[in-house]
Computed example of a mutant assay.
Amino acid sequence: MFGSFAKRLSLPTVRRYSQAFTMSLKAISAKDAASLDKDLMDMGGWSLDQLMELAGLSVSQAVWKVHPLNAGPNILIVCGPGNNGGDGLVAARHLAQYGYKPSVYYPKEGKNELYQRLKTQLHNLSVPFITDFDAALKDTDFLVDAIFGFSFGGPLRDPFGPIVSRIESSNIPVLSVDAPSSWDIQSGPPKEGPGAKFMPKALISLTAPKPCVKFYSGRHFVGGRFLSKDITDKYGLDMPPYPGIEQVLEVKVDAEGRL
């Protein structure tokens, strides 16, 4: 499907590779990612709510592709206090609508009023917020790591160090949102401590890959179909050809010389 789609569009830089596109995607730095978000809101007319909704929708679609419902319905979403955690809250809502049984671990809640509204939406769908993380891990089929995204600078502070260590040492398949939590956006996994050996099964890069993707070896998805040409031109981004109504696309990234 993907190969024929690329052929129809005459995209010579795209080829089929294990059901994923291989193409050279420019990675975007944390500074430029923050600037891009600001441009979207200041000049593009987007609200934080809209951006978070689209990000969370992309995350939920990536979960569907990596871990279909028949692989086990119990999904644990671990959320951090910032926008990455907000993306996880949105993803939990969509996953509940798809028929999964999501639960949320939210040890340090964000202060933005938006996060409280997202929590209310989940309460209305009877999505539980758990407090016993170790017990939840035992009953989980799949985990979404929505703790820290592109703004993380390290080192991990409590309670997140022990949380990442438990995820890292478990046998549960994980999808990380934007970057594996504990990883430096530029230099990848820490050399020691929590996260040093953390390699999630899947990663979804929102808007564009971050430089740390060159250290990643699992399944990689990109989501960010809503970007306009003026934004992609300003930041030199390469938007892959999302097929049909898809909000995410699995890609093999060859980012050598592009970071």
Rank of each mutant, 00 (worst) to 15 (best):
Y216R: 08
V222F: 10
Y216P: 04
K197A: 03
V222A: 12
L237R: 12
L203K: 02
T207D: 03
R219G: 02
G223A: 11
R219D: 15
G223S: 13
K201C: 02
C212A: 15
A202E: 13
F221M: 04
D233I: 01
F221Q: 04
T232C: 13
L227A: 00
L206V: 10
G218A: 04
F215K: 12
F226D: 07
T232A: 09
R219T: 11
Y216A: 08
K210V: 08
D230Y: 01
K210G: 11
A202V: 11
R225F: 02
R225G: 09
P209F: 09
F226A: 14
K210M: 13
G224L: 07
I231E: 09
D230L: 01
A202C: 13
D230G: 00
Y216I: 05
Y235P: 11
K210D: 11
F226Y: 15
D233W: 01
R225I: 05
S205V: 03
K229S: 12
G218K: 06
L206S: 08
R225T: 03
L206C: 06
L203G: 02
A196P: 06
K234E: 04
A196V: 07
S217W: 02
P209M: 09
F226M: 14
Y235I: 11
G224D: 10
C212N: 02
A196T: 10
A196M: 12
L237G: 11
P211I: 03
V213N: 13
M199V: 06
G223L: 13
V222Q: 12
S228V: 05
S205P: 04
Y216K: 06
A196G: 07
L206H: 08
D230R: 00
